[in-house]
């Protein structure tokens, strides 16, 4: 089972590289879908089947479809070279990101060691258990998100109208 984690971890990283370095938006979107699917498999391995399915249904099946549709509608083609590229960002950005990566790696290593096992007791992550928690302890955040979605729907309608 562990080997599956590493396989899909590598798939996720390669696809993420492709998201960042592809110059055609459609290819970036397709690579992001691969990342999402690989992460869904990893969620399954980590004992979160419900979240894995929600990830595929909502993220890959709805959000990314919106992205692909917008790319198709706007006919976003090949990304050309930038007219005015900031030299400063080019020389400072990558080292800073690398520093962030190393820093975080050191923290993880100090805290958990290289083989600090993720303890895996039998955790009941069935949809029923998640639903019980969601509608009992987390009922207020749940209702607040529903209002958030309502606001988002209104905002999207207002923004997408031709005449503002």
């Amino acid at each position: 089972m562990e080997i599956l984690f590493y396989i899909f971890g590598v798939v996720a990283i390669v696809a993420a590289l492709s998201v960042v370095f592809q110059r055609t938006p459609v290819y970036s979107a397709l690579s992001l879908i691969v990342v999402l699917a690989a992460l869904a498999v990893i969620y399954l391995l980590l004992g979160a089947p419900f979240i894995a399915m929600v990830q595929v249904i909502v993220y890959a099946g709805a959000i990314m479809v919106l992205f692909v549709l917008v790319i198709m509608l706007l006919n976003a083609g090949h990304e050309g070279p930038s007219a005015h590229r900031a030299k400063f960002a080019r020389w400072v950005g990558p080292p800073l990101l690398l520093a962030f990566l190393v820093e975080f790696g050191v923290i993880v290593w100090k805290q958990y060691g290289l083989t600090g096992a993720a303890s895996a007791p039998a955790l009941d992550a069935s949809p029923a258990a998640i639903g019980r928690l969601l509608f009992k302890s987390y009922i207020l955040p749940f209702e607040v998100t529903s209002i958030l979605i309502l606001v988002a729907v209104l905002g999207a309608v207002v923004l997408a109208k031709k005449q503002l």
């Binding site: 971890g9 990893i42 993880v108 290289l114 083989t115 600090g116 096992a117």
Partner: peptide, 14 residues
């Protein structure tokens, strides 16, 4: 079992 540090490393790389 999958070590926690490996999952976190994957997360930070992404």
């Amino acid at each position: 079992m999958i070590p926690l540090s490996h999952i976190l490393l994957l997360s930070v790389i992404l």
